[in-house]
Design a protein around this nucleic acid. Structure first.
Lengths: 201, 201
DNA sequence: ACCTGGGGGTGACACCTGTCATGGTGCGCC
DNA sequence: GGCGCACCATGACAGGTGTCACCCCCAGGT
């Protein structure tokens, strides 16, 4: 009997996944949480063997949680289950110690198999996604450029970004200009979208 | 036995919801689709009584599908099940003929009840969401302003928006300026986010 | 017939943005 | 030390953006 922990911020999806996985005779859901920062304690307490982690959660992201689990509970395996198959996410997930990466529009019947393979010590990554991830390569953005781009994601004016980053407006514009060049975009909004879609942020 | 149709673009979520709802002895899932434009045919063929519709789907949005169902299959009831509890969505959903509106982070156990109530001819709307929806009021944006704002959502430059809308740049800027005023924003990016978050687009 | 309001447009102005040149600092590395 | 590179900053310039005044047309209301 493989013991599972589910982490997803949408209660309905969480509950539905639990119902789906509990139908399998060799799987049992022993814990459910809705926040990233509650996973570690719940995993410890419940004795989960595999953690299914959404990436976008309040508290901590699934990627951060995977890292935490590798450090604190090395016996527990992480399987990232997310909406977005961004190339960079796959790389970062594996770097963070995740054992698998599954997109939320894979067929439901395959999820249980992915869990079993991860539990058996194998790596599970959507093949098409893995290829895309290799093609895209690592992020060309420097740390500061990525930081500035993150602040520019919602379309804030340069002045606001400069305040938030404690930088001069000129410096912010230079970083943005560099990011625009590296992403092949022509406005910072486009650059932010491109970087976001490749998982560079 | 209440016959259900599930429409959600994420196969995993769709399958999981099916598993969850099939556990109920008085409910049965008779059809599942991943696109908005496949709902009508599937509903006809399967003889579904209640359709659970996600809003954001390829093909048609859940709101458009609800409208379609009301017109073509008046006996079938629609229940919107969505990630985003945007105030304007509730109003538009009810205007479109939906019988209920549920957010994806309501507890899983409540979903079956919502389905039963909708099937019984009742309206089901999250109380907090309903209140928020009344507070926010209807959209102050004119049709064109909303259309232009939609095109501005991704941060495209005015020139691109003007081309896409077959308008002069001056007119686009006038519409955007009006939208910025009405949303209380100070840039078109902020205006677009505000309008989006209120379901005005 | 008159007024009102949405839609489309122009022109002008102040301000914001993207780009580039240039300079300085600190860090790791051969 | 000298080199490259990330980082921070300033100044200048072209072009994009937000605002405003003012124009036209047309559909509804009164």
């Amino acid at each position: 009997m493989i013991r599972l922990l589910l982490a997803d911020d949408q209660a309905l999806v969480r509950g539905a996944l639990a119902a789906l996985l509990d139908l399998e005779t060799d799987l049992t859901v022993v814990a459910q949480v809705g926040r990233g920062d509650e996973v570690l304690a719940a995993a410890r307490e419940s004795g989960a063997e595999v953690c299914l982690l959404d990436i976008e959660m309040p508290g901590l992201t699934g990627l951060e949680v995977a890292e935490q689990l590798r450090a604190e509970l090395p016996g527990v395996r992480s399987l990232i289950v997310t909406t977005f198959g961004r190339p960079g996410y796959v790389r970062r997930a594996l770097d963070a110690g995740a054992a698998g990466f599954v997109v939320k529009d894979t067929p439901a019947r395959e999820l249980a198999d992915a869990v079993r393979r991860v539990h058996a010590g194998l790596r599970v990554v959507d093949p098409g996604l893995a290829a895309e991830s290799l093609m895209a390569g690592p992020s060309p953005l420097t740390v500061r450029e990525a930081e500035i781009l993150r602040l520019a994601l919602d379309g804030s004016p340069v002045a606001a970004i400069a305040r938030a980053a404690h930088l001069s407006q000129g410096t912010v514009r230079n970083h943005l200009s560099a990011a625009i060049g590296k992403t092949g975009a022509s406005t910072r909004a486009e650059a932010a979208r491109v970087a976001q879609s490749r998982g560079w942020l």
